[in-house]
Write a protein that binds this DNA or RNA. Sequence first.
RNA 1: CGGGGUGUAGUGUAACGGUUAACAUUCCUGUUUUGGGAACAGGCGACUCAGGGUUCGAAUCCCUGCACCCCGACCA
Length: 419
Amino acid sequence: MRQSQIFTKTRREAPSDEVAKNSQLLIRAGFIQKMTAGVYSFLPLGLKVLNNIEKIIREEMNAIGGQELRLAALQEKALWEKTNRWDDAVVDNWFKTTLKNGNEMGLGFTHEEPLTSLMRDHIRSFRDLPVYAYQFQTKFRNETRAKSGILRGREFLMKDLYSFSRDEKEHDEFYEKSKIAYKNVFNRAGIGEKTYITFASGGSFSKYSHEFQMLTEAGEDIIYYNKEKGVAVNKEVYTDEVLAEMGLKKSDMTEGKAVEVGNIFSLGTKFSEPLELFYKNEEGKNIPVIMGSYGIGVPRLMGSIVEALGDDKGIVWPTEVSPFAVHIIAMKTEGVVMEAAEKLYKELTDIGIEVLLDDRDARAGEKFGDADLIGIPLRITIGEKSIAEGKYEFNDRIAQKTELFDKDQLMAYIGKHNV
RNA sequence: CGGGGUGUAGUGUAACGGUUAACAUUCCUGUUUUGGGAACAGGCGACUCAGGGUUCGAAUCCCUGCACCCCGACCA
C-alpha cells in the first residue's frame, strides 16, 4: 500500500485525555480512534493488526480442533434466566434494551448460554463428542469504569472457545492442549517472554482457573511469578496451600503487575445441567456434557503488545502482527530514487509480501519519525547513496541500526522474518 | 458505585473578573529547501461542553447537568 493513499494521519501529540501508553501511541499513529470512554474504532492500520492477531488465534484454535462459528450478539432474556445470569444483581455489566413489542433483550457479554443451548440440537450421543467451537465476536460489557486505553473497553472483539466433552478426562486433555495453543498465540504475538500462565480463582464457575498474565505496569492484576518455571499465581489465590500444591516456594516468587491477556476455565456441568445439554452414553444413559471456556480479548492483546514492546519513538510490532511486513521509505518522490522504490515495492508485493511504501512528498525526518511511530519492524530506505552502491539500506526498528544488504541478503533477511 | 480532577481552534497549551480570546502545531498559498519532524512570507480555523445565575462587564466566580481522566470498589 502506498502511504500517500492512507487517509489516516499521524500526530505529534496524543489527546490529553489519553493516559495509557497503548492508546496514546495507537491514536498518534492512526490505528484507532476513541469514540467515548471504553469505545474505540479501528482504522485501516489498526484493523490490519487486529486481523493479524485474529489470524494467529484462528490458526492455533483450528490446530487443536476448534470449529469457528458466529453466534448472535442479541440475547433473549428467558435463556439467561435459566442459568440465573439475567438479573442485574447477579451480572452487573449487561447492556440491555427493549424491543418494540416490549420484550427485553441483552447484548452478549459472553456466550456460554446461547452456545450450550445451540448444541442441544447437535449433541445427542457420545459419538457426537467432543466438540470445540469458537468465534470472534464483539462483546458488550457495561463496565463501571473503562480504562487503560484498549485494555479494558465496553465493546471489544473477543475470541471465545467452548469445549464440550464426555467426561473430566476428555476435558482435562483438551484443557492441557489449550494451554499449549495459548502459549503459541502469545509467543507468535511477541509477548511470550513476558506472559505467564497464572493460577487463579475460578470466579463463580469453578474453584480455580488459569489466566495468561503479561507483566506490565499498565495491568490491573497483581501476580507472583517464577521466571525459571514460567508460572505464576494470582494474588487472589496466593496462599501457602496453593503454593504447596504447585510445588512452589514463596521465596522464589516475584511480585508484579500484569494484564490478563487470556484465560481458560473449567465449567464442569454448570451450564449443561440447567440448559439440559445431555448426551446418551454407551448404556443409553443421559449424561451432562462437561464444558470449558477459553477467552482472548483481541484488542486487549493488541494493546498489551504496544505496552510491552513500544518505546519512546513509537510502536514496535512483532513480525506476525505488524500491519505490513516491510516499510519502504522513498527519500525522493521522483527520479531514480522513486523508480527504485517502486521497483522493490512491486517485486516484494508480487511475491506476497505486504509492503507499505512511503511515497509521500515529505521530508526525511518526518518519514523516519512516522515510520518509527507506526512500528513496522523491517524498514528499507531507498536513497541516492544506497542506489549508487547497488545496495539496500536496511533498518532494524528495534535495534535502531542500519545495514547495507545486497539483493540476495535482503531477500533472505525478509524471508527469514516472514514465515 | 464512592472519592478526586479537568472541560478553551483538528491537536497541545495560555489568558488578574476588563480591548478583537493568545501561542505552538496541524491545515491552505507562495518562494527557497530536501537523509531524522526545514526557513521565510501570507492565510483559514473557537458563540471558551450545555443550561441557568452573580456582575456595569464572565473563558475566569456560583449552581445544575453532561462528558472525559485518575484512585478505589467491581471484573461474570
